[in-house]
Simulated scan of single mutants.
Amino acid sequence: MIRPDGKVEMHVTGVDGTACVEHTDQLVGLLGGEVESQELTADAYVQTEADTAVDEQNRLWH
């Protein structure tokens, strides 16, 4: 949403884990690359299969 003051507000839904940040990186860059604030929703804290695989690999290396 573009607010009356010209600032852009994004709400990402349907993406578990922090992949939402990766999905919006290009758009943020096109809009100037400056993020004033960021608030993660409960979906960001859902552990995905990719997160689980990284956790398992990290345990193997430690």
Rank of each mutant, 00 (worst) to 15 (best):
I2K: 07
I2W: 06
I2C: 01
P4N: 09
P4I: 07
P4V: 10
P4D: 09
P4C: 07
G6W: 11
G6F: 08
K7H: 00
K7S: 06
E9Q: 09
M10I: 13
H11N: 14
H11F: 14
V12I: 14
V12E: 03
T13V: 11
G14N: 02
V15W: 13
V15Y: 08
V15H: 12
D16H: 12
G17A: 11
G17K: 14
G17C: 10
G17E: 08
T18A: 04
T18R: 11
C20M: 08
C20I: 08
C20G: 15
V21D: 06
V21K: 06
V21I: 10
E22P: 02
E22Y: 15
H23V: 09
H23W: 01
H23I: 02
D25T: 14
D25M: 07
Q26H: 11
L27C: 00
L27E: 04
L27Y: 06
L27S: 06
V28E: 07
G29M: 10
G29H: 10
L30M: 13
L30E: 14
L30S: 07
L30K: 14
L31V: 01
G32I: 04
G33W: 07
G33V: 02
E34L: 03
E34I: 03
V35N: 00
V35C: 03
E36C: 02
S37L: 01
S37E: 14
E39S: 11
E39F: 12
E39D: 10
L40G: 04
L40N: 08
L40P: 02
A42H: 07
A42G: 06
D43Q: 12
D43M: 08
A44M: 02
A44E: 00
A44W: 01
Y45L: 15
Y45N: 10
V46L: 06
Q47A: 08
Q47N: 02
T48G: 00
E49S: 03
A50H: 05
D51E: 06
T52A: 10
V54Y: 13
V54A: 09
D55F: 09
E56G: 01
Q57E: 12
Q57I: 12
Q57P: 04
N58D: 12
N58F: 12
N58S: 12
N58C: 03
R59C: 12
R59Y: 07
R59P: 07
W61D: 10
W61A: 15
W61G: 14
W61P: 11
H62D: 12
H62W: 01
H62G: 03
